[in-house]
């Protein structure tokens, strides 16, 4: 299965990844190879097979509704790129 340049541009945008123009051909080639590999799945008929999302047959455990966490803002914001007045700052969001 061949991946096109436009596919790379579309998914790079979906995933918010800047890809240098010069690197696009290599991504096209490598991803096409990967999808050739992936296409081997098509050789097997899976019509009657249940999809398996998870390795274990388990169900979700439920947590008691108790507020257990204390304020750690200062601790957590030490590693933040940019904060002010306790807020994380990002370039202006336009709505």
């Amino acid at each position: 299965m061949s991946i096109e340049r436009s596919d790379i541009e579309k998914i790079a945008h979906l995933a918010r990844l800047e890809v240098a123009e010069a690197d696009v051909p290599e991504y096209v080639r490598n991803l096409s190879n990967v999808f050739d590999l992936v296409a081997q799945m098509d050789s097997v008929d899976t019509d009657s097979v249940e999809p398996m999302a998870h390795p274990m047959e388990m169900v979700q455990r439920l947590r008691d509704d108790v507020a257990t966490e204390s304020d750690q803002r200062e601790h957590f914001q030490q590693i933040a790129p940019q904060t002010e007045n306790g807020l994380y700052l990002v370039p202006k969001v336009i709505e």
Binding site: I3, D7, I8, K10, I11, A12, L14, A15, L17, V19, Y27, N30, L31, V34, F35, V38, M41, D42, V44, T46, V49, E50, P51, M52, A53
Partner: peptide, 29 residues
């Protein structure tokens, strides 16, 4: 980046069943 792009692709509209569901079925087998 390559793997993120592969992942975004197989989950994107129109490809989910052909790739993601197919892979989960293969996983079952």
């Amino acid at each position: 980046k390559r793997r993120i792009m592969i992942g975004a692709y197989v989950l994107s509209a129109g490809y989910y069943d052909a790739y993601y569901i197919k892979a989960q079925k293969s996983r079952q087998l």
